[in-house]
Amino acid sequence: MRTAVIVFPGSNCEHDVAHVLRSLGAEPELVFHRDRDLTGADGIVLPGGFAHGDYLRTGAIARFSPVMAEVERHAAAGTPVIGICNGFQILTEAGLLPGAMVANRGLRFICRHVLVRVESTDSVLTRNADVGDVLRIPLNSYQGNFVLDTDRLAALEERGGVLLRYVDEKGHPDHTINGTTIAGIANAAGNVAGVMPHPERASERLLGSSDGLVLLESFVASMAKLPA
């Protein structure tokens, strides 16, 4: 399974995610943002980092990188596309996912493990997980506070578009981490998904948690077109 891992100027998680994808049997290829050809890609990853220096708004300039027209074409055709952290921000700016990101409540850059609960398995990012699973994954962001107007947020929740929600130790939804409880969402078709914490940084026991593996395994299974 050929997986295009897009590298923008300022991306910094491309090697980590490629490493984990390779260990899961995929064939990741780093693709520079100026490339326009994603022919043959079975899946696409927009990795974390600070694309284009986060200038203007996070993801705002990356969304017009030459490669993004191909990403949008693949997304419309049903190819699995995931965005992690900055990649999630780019997907919202591109309109491939609803909503937008604003600064964390409390204006702190957050860099620590958080707990997220699986809310829906109807996506390329969560299909191998079970609803109710609680995963311990590192969050590493300043603009991770997902916002959407009330009506659209209700519609997103109604259709099961919220994939992952921040929870506290007791399993209750927790908005005190960065201001939102929403840690991951998908589009209506379920083939485009964004996640704010970094599953690739929780993919080996050596890293303190391997809870992120199930998310990347879901993505790899989706690329392989395995029955859910």
Binding site: V102, A103, N104, L107, N145, D149, T150, G179
Partner: peptide, 10 residues
């Protein structure tokens, strides 16, 4: 209006 503004609130 109605969209969180953490810088403003702080």
């Amino acid at each position: 209006d109605g969209i969180a503004d953490p810088e403003g609130t702080t």
